[in-house]
Amino acid sequence: MSRDWPLWEVFVRSRRGLSHIHAGSVHAPDAQMALRNARDLYTRRQEGVSIWVVPSAAVTASSPDEKDPFFAPAADKAYRHPTFYDIPSEVQHL
């Protein structure tokens, strides 16, 4: 049993029109305190207009050790990129 308050991951939207981006983490006893702590810690200089806090224990992550097999299916599909196709130079707007 940890003696620390639960850990929360903090996501900050820096301004309208942008998505929330991971900023770091805070310890807090509950969600409301996590929000307040995150505000004091990550937005002291107007870095955000919106904050999400998510219990760190709720994050499911792929493991870096499985990196190669896990992401391998994308490696041999170069045809998904526009640069895969040769287009005659006189063809415009394509």
Partner: peptide, 16 residues
């Protein structure tokens, strides 16, 4: 803070 969270926490936490 821990006592307060235990008393009120789960309801508001889930809603949030």
């Amino acid at each position: 803070a821990v006592a307060h969270a235990a008393k009120h926490g789960e309801r508001s936490g889930a809603g949030q």
